Simulated assay, not measured.
Amino acid sequence: MNKLLLTLGVSALSPLTMAKPVIVTSIQPVSMVVAAITGDRAEIEQIVSSTASPHDFALRPSDLRKIAQADTVVWVGESLESFLEKPLENAGKEASSIEWLALDGMSLRDFGEEHHDEHAGHDDHDEHAGHDDHDEHAGHDDHDEHAGHDDHDEHAGHDDHDEHGGHDDHDEHVGHEGHHHDGVDPHVWLSPDNAKVLARAVTKRLASLDADNAKYYQANLAKFEQGLTTQDATIRAALNKVNKVPYIVFHDGYSYFEEHYALNHAGEVTVSPERKPGAKKVAELRHEIEEHKVQCVFSEPQFSPAIVNTLLEGTKVKTARLDPLGSDIKLDMNAYFNFMNSLSDQFLSCLG
């Protein structure tokens, strides 16, 4: 009888002892960096699907439960994911969350900064200064309204997410209270250096949550950093062959990547992807294409390429797709490496 009770007791406790930390992430690029560290020792729950936009997103009740039950929420920051600010506060998760933009060691850029000194003729970027429409991702036209959030006028639907059991807060991340990044370009995942900063913060957090696997997480961090260093050199060598070729992007959301690899950004189709450029802007872009001898205009998979096709009608300028979210990248430990390789290949396909 005693043996039976002991067996039942061990069986009842085993799910608790085997429970994995639950990390809730905001968007796909965040999940990619987190996955490089977690491996199979933690669960990742992503809020915004890889084909949706963080700009006009609305949380569902299941997302709010996910936030409340998470060990840690990892997000880019209020300037990109404003829909998370109130829910994090309401759930008491601000101190235990990791806000990428607020981490020490980050290299941040403001919208409106000149891209590169060596890129001649790029003095017409003043239309970006301080713009607060960081809606680079997502043309999804099926945005149902979702209940359960305060003061958010975002409207985007997304796939269902299962909820996980409750977990206590663990304060490891420097609090992001008071960290306002108005005018800061939030596309920080496009810099391998910034990816390393987040990976270190995630490693520290996981080690505090799951001390038994601390060495595993630290080994994954070392592997990630070494892999990024090697990959960075390979990508740089490839892009150096085309870094004088002028191009236009769909929107000004690639500056971290462009700055890091010294690419020749000549302009963008639109400041905000949800605003179609008018006839005047199209005329200006056509002039820019001729003046700078632009060889490629990039579109994005989240938006219709119609405006790009219209812009290039009658010209011999090439076009290709850039995906700033890596929406087709499988989420595993190599996801961030695969994303950066994919983005590099997308540039090379049109500039080479």
Rank of each mutant, 00 (worst) to 15 (best):
A95S: 11
A138L: 07
L331I: 06
N264S: 09
L239T: 00
A120I: 06
P273D: 12
G157R: 04
S299N: 08
V24H: 05
S79V: 09
E177G: 02
R109H: 14
Q302T: 00
S82V: 01
A102V: 03
V249S: 13
H140C: 03
K241Y: 05
H251D: 13
K20S: 10
P324A: 13
D71H: 05
I235G: 04
S96E: 14
G326D: 09
H173Q: 13
D332A: 01
I67S: 12
G92E: 10
L198A: 06
D171M: 07
A70Y: 10
S255I: 02
G130M: 14
V202Q: 08
D169W: 00
K215T: 05
K244Q: 14
L4W: 03
E85S: 09
I248M: 11
E43L: 05
A237P: 02
Q28Y: 04
T230Q: 15
Y254D: 10
S82G: 13
S96T: 00
R41W: 05
S96L: 07
V197T: 10
K316D: 15
A19M: 11
G39N: 07
F57H: 11
V73C: 12
Q346T: 00
L84W: 10
F347E: 12
G148I: 06
Q346H: 01
A320T: 01
H149S: 13
G105Y: 09
G166A: 14
H137Q: 13
V188K: 02
A201K: 01
A12N: 01
G157E: 15
S14C: 10
G112E: 07
E258Q: 04
H134I: 04
D126A: 05
T319H: 13
H265K: 06
H146M: 08
E268M: 08
V202S: 08
E99D: 11
S344C: 12
Q302G: 14
E136R: 00
E172H: 03
I307R: 00
K276H: 09
R65M: 15
G227M: 08
R60S: 15
R321E: 15
G352Y: 04
I289E: 14
E290S: 08
K316C: 05
A262Y: 00
L263V: 00
F83V: 01
E114L: 09
T38F: 10
D150H: 06
H187N: 10
A156N: 06
E313W: 03
H155M: 07
L4C: 04
A201N: 03
N194F: 10
I307W: 07
